[in-house]
Simulated scan of single mutants.
Amino acid sequence: MVTYRSPREWKIMREAGRAVARTLAAVRDAAEPGVPLAELEAVAARTLKRMEARPSFLGYRPSWTSVPYPGTVCVSVNEVVVHGIPHAHITLEDGDVVSVDCGAEVGGYHGDAAITFVVGTADAGAERLLAATAQALDDAVAAARPGNRMGDVSHAVDRIARANGYGVLDGWGGHGIGTSMHEDPPVPNRGSAGRGLRLREGLTIAIEPMFHEGGEDATRVLDDGWSIVTADGSRAAHFEHTVAVTADGPRVLTLP
């Protein structure tokens, strides 16, 4: 069942979104060659505490896994597309493609966003991957307006992936968000324009394109029960914003 949010609720979600944005920026600033992922986790935990926000991910267990998530943020490196665990034994190296996904709860409402960046020196392939994934998010956000359909949002992502020959996560995408981290409706990263749920004011969704350099959509889950990696070992990128559908168009709730 889809729940439609009010401006009062968006105001609270904006506070959660601000905490998410501040945390993502702090983690990115701390990411350098030689830094263990556990240090990024510690930075995220301190930042959310300072913002008086609760981490949405810590202890979260959706239906598809039996393992509660053990971290404050997801840190996914290179072939890990999403849900990477910030293990102490993994250390960042120059050229690593790193995606950080953060959720925060303030006053009973959640915000969710993700960024991807390169540690140290970026090669041309990484720059192209990140630029395309970020463009897909921008285009999808622009399509999130009253009168459009969910397929218009999905198609905006799908079109960029196909134009660049990138794969997407099969069966994974964005979601509704509000008093729970994951709510209806699903927001697929593949779809046809003009199809699906009619968007109307009050709908609040997390849009999250996830592209990888391999052309196929095949992925697998690691033994940790969370990390989803590309089957062919290709590098991945992930960008995400929480977006409110308003009468004046899309409003991004997870900007800094």
Results as ranks from 00 to 15, higher is better:
E9A: 14
D232F: 06
G151M: 03
V98L: 11
A247S: 10
K11G: 09
V252S: 00
G194N: 06
R50P: 04
A236M: 03
E127S: 09
L92D: 09
L129S: 07
S180N: 10
A143K: 08
P146F: 14
A42I: 01
A236W: 03
V106E: 15
K11M: 14
T230H: 00
R149L: 07
D158I: 03
G125W: 13
A30K: 07
I12Y: 11
R235K: 11
N189V: 14
R220N: 04
G225L: 04
G215I: 03
P7E: 11
I90W: 15
E216C: 08
L137M: 01
V75N: 01
H182C: 07
D112Q: 10
I207N: 02
A21M: 14
F211Y: 15
G125P: 09
G225E: 01
W64K: 08
A237Q: 02
S6Y: 02
A104P: 02
A231P: 03
R198V: 14
Y166P: 05
M181K: 11
Y4F: 15
A142I: 04
D138H: 12
V157Y: 00
W64L: 10
D112T: 04
E105G: 04
C74S: 15
D158P: 01
V2T: 15
H110R: 12
P250D: 05
V243H: 14
H87S: 12
V153A: 02
D139Y: 11
D232E: 11
V97T: 12
T72E: 00
S63P: 13
F57I: 13
T116I: 02
G120M: 02
I228F: 00
P256W: 05
E41W: 02
R28M: 04
E79W: 06
A16R: 00
L37E: 08
S192C: 11
K11L: 13
L253C: 03
P186T: 10
G107S: 05
D248Y: 05
A131Y: 05
R195S: 13
R14V: 09
T204R: 09
G103Y: 03
D96K: 12
P68S: 08
A144K: 05
L24E: 05
L169W: 02
A136L: 03
G34F: 01
L203V: 05
G165H: 07
R61V: 09
G111F: 07
V243I: 04
G84D: 09
D224R: 11
T246L: 06
G202H: 07
E216W: 02
S99L: 00
P68T: 06
L37K: 04
R200E: 12
Q135R: 14
V168C: 10
A45S: 12
A42Q: 13
T219F: 12
A236L: 09
W172G: 08
N189G: 13
A132R: 06
P70H: 03
R198K: 12
V82W: 13
L203H: 13
F211A: 01
A45D: 08
G167T: 01
R159Q: 13
G191T: 05
A42N: 08
D94M: 12
H212R: 00
A31C: 04
V77W: 03
A247T: 03
G202V: 06
A114P: 08
D158F: 15
G191W: 00
I228T: 12
L130Q: 07
A218V: 08
G151A: 10
G214T: 01
V157G: 00
